[in-house]
Protein backbone atom coordinates (compact mmCIF):
# COMPACT_ATOMS: atom_id res chain seq x y z
CA UNK A 1 0.00 0.00 0.00
CA UNK A 2 2.71 2.51 0.93
CA UNK A 3 4.57 1.60 -2.27
CA UNK A 4 1.48 2.49 -4.31
CA UNK A 5 1.18 5.79 -2.48
CA UNK A 6 4.82 6.73 -3.14
CA UNK A 7 4.35 5.87 -6.81
CA UNK A 8 1.24 8.07 -6.91
CA UNK A 9 3.24 10.91 -5.32
CA UNK A 10 5.79 10.55 -8.14
CA UNK A 11 2.92 10.90 -10.64
CA UNK A 12 1.68 14.01 -8.81
CA UNK A 13 5.17 15.54 -9.00
CA UNK A 14 4.92 15.15 -12.78
CA UNK A 15 1.51 16.87 -12.85
CA UNK A 16 2.89 19.67 -10.67
CA UNK A 17 5.72 20.22 -13.16
CA UNK A 18 3.35 20.38 -16.12
CA UNK A 19 1.03 22.85 -14.39
CA UNK A 20 3.56 25.28 -12.94
CA UNK A 21 6.72 25.29 -15.08
CA UNK A 22 7.06 27.75 -17.92
CA UNK A 23 9.94 26.16 -19.81
CA UNK A 24 9.15 23.67 -22.55
CA UNK A 25 12.13 21.52 -21.48
CA UNK A 26 10.83 21.18 -17.93
CA UNK A 27 7.36 20.32 -19.28
CA UNK A 28 8.82 17.55 -21.46
CA UNK A 29 10.73 16.20 -18.44
CA UNK A 30 7.51 16.26 -16.36
CA UNK A 31 5.68 14.23 -19.01
CA UNK A 32 8.57 11.74 -18.79
CA UNK A 33 8.18 11.53 -15.00
CA UNK A 34 4.44 10.81 -15.35
CA UNK A 35 5.23 8.03 -17.82
CA UNK A 36 7.76 6.44 -15.45
CA UNK A 37 5.24 6.52 -12.59
CA UNK A 38 2.46 4.95 -14.68
CA UNK A 39 4.71 2.12 -15.92
CA UNK A 40 6.08 1.44 -12.45
CA UNK A 41 2.56 1.36 -10.97
CA UNK A 42 1.45 -1.33 -13.42
CA UNK A 43 4.46 -3.49 -12.61
CA UNK A 44 3.88 -2.99 -8.87
CA UNK A 45 0.38 -4.44 -9.33
CA UNK A 46 1.94 -7.50 -10.98
CA UNK A 47 4.31 -8.47 -8.16
CA UNK A 48 3.69 -11.56 -6.11
CA UNK A 49 5.47 -12.40 -2.86
CA UNK A 50 8.44 -14.83 -3.04
CA UNK A 51 8.12 -15.21 -6.78
CA UNK A 52 10.43 -15.59 -9.76
CA UNK A 53 10.56 -13.99 -13.22
CA UNK A 54 8.20 -15.50 -15.85
CA UNK A 55 10.78 -17.36 -17.93
CA UNK A 56 10.46 -21.14 -18.04
CA UNK A 57 13.50 -23.20 -17.11
CA UNK A 58 14.29 -26.36 -15.20
CA UNK A 59 13.39 -26.40 -11.54
CA UNK A 60 11.16 -23.30 -11.71
CA UNK A 61 7.55 -23.82 -10.68
CA UNK A 62 4.98 -22.11 -12.91
CA UNK A 63 2.73 -21.42 -9.94
CA UNK A 64 5.41 -19.22 -8.36
CA UNK A 65 5.85 -16.76 -11.23
CA UNK A 66 4.90 -13.06 -11.28
CA UNK A 67 2.06 -11.81 -13.47
CA UNK A 68 3.42 -11.66 -17.07
CA UNK A 69 0.52 -9.69 -18.60
CA UNK A 70 1.33 -6.18 -17.26
CA UNK A 71 4.99 -6.75 -18.11
CA UNK A 72 4.07 -7.46 -21.73
CA UNK A 73 1.91 -4.34 -21.94
CA UNK A 74 4.47 -2.07 -20.27
CA UNK A 75 7.26 -3.33 -22.55
CA UNK A 76 5.64 -1.78 -25.62
CA UNK A 77 4.56 1.29 -23.65
CA UNK A 78 8.19 2.11 -22.77
CA UNK A 79 9.24 2.00 -26.42
CA UNK A 80 6.33 4.23 -27.47
CA UNK A 81 7.32 6.68 -24.75
CA UNK A 82 10.71 7.04 -26.41
CA UNK A 83 9.03 7.83 -29.73
CA UNK A 84 6.74 10.46 -28.22
CA UNK A 85 9.64 12.02 -26.29
CA UNK A 86 11.61 12.36 -29.52
CA UNK A 87 8.59 13.96 -31.20
CA UNK A 88 8.12 16.44 -28.33
CA UNK A 89 11.81 17.36 -28.49
CA UNK A 90 11.56 17.93 -32.24
CA UNK A 91 8.52 20.20 -31.75
CA UNK A 92 10.31 22.14 -29.00
CA UNK A 93 13.36 22.64 -31.21
CA UNK A 94 11.12 23.87 -34.03
CA UNK A 95 9.46 26.37 -31.67
CA UNK A 96 12.90 27.48 -30.47
CA UNK A 97 14.00 28.18 -34.03
CA UNK A 98 10.94 30.32 -34.65
CA UNK A 99 10.70 32.22 -31.36
CA UNK A 100 14.27 31.96 -29.92
CA UNK A 101 12.93 30.99 -26.50
CA UNK A 102 11.58 28.02 -24.55
CA UNK A 103 9.31 30.16 -22.37
CA UNK A 104 5.70 29.28 -23.14
CA UNK A 105 4.39 32.66 -21.97
CA UNK A 106 6.42 34.36 -24.70
CA UNK A 107 5.24 32.02 -27.47
CA UNK A 108 2.03 33.79 -28.36
CA UNK A 109 1.77 34.22 -32.08
CA UNK A 110 0.67 30.72 -33.10
CA UNK A 111 0.59 31.13 -36.84
CA UNK A 112 2.44 29.40 -39.63
Amino acid sequence: MIVYLLCFILFLVGIYGILTKRDLIKIILSIGIMGYAANLMLILFAYRNNSIYPILSEGKAVSQMVDPLPQALVLTSIVIELGTTAMLVALALRLYEKYKTFDITKIRRLKG
Binding site: N39, L40, I43, L44, A46, Y47, S51, I52, Y53, P54, I55, V66, Q71, V74, L75, I78, V79, E81, L82
Partner: peptide
Protein backbone atom coordinates in the same frame (compact mmCIF):
# COMPACT_ATOMS: atom_id res chain seq x y z
CA UNK B 1 16.40 -0.93 -10.77
CA UNK B 2 12.95 -1.39 -9.27
CA UNK B 3 11.94 -3.46 -12.34
CA UNK B 4 14.85 -5.77 -11.45
CA UNK B 5 13.59 -6.03 -7.86
CA UNK B 6 10.06 -6.73 -9.14
CA UNK B 7 11.26 -9.75 -11.17
CA UNK B 8 10.96 -8.16 -14.61
CA UNK B 9 14.41 -8.53 -16.23
CA UNK B 10 13.19 -7.82 -19.80
CA UNK B 11 11.65 -4.57 -18.71
CA UNK B 12 14.75 -3.57 -16.75
CA UNK B 13 16.92 -3.95 -19.87
CA UNK B 14 14.44 -2.06 -22.09
CA UNK B 15 14.06 0.73 -19.52
CA UNK B 16 17.85 1.05 -19.23
CA UNK B 17 18.22 1.40 -23.01
CA UNK B 18 15.29 3.86 -23.11
Amino acid sequence: LSFLFLQAPDLAVVQFLF
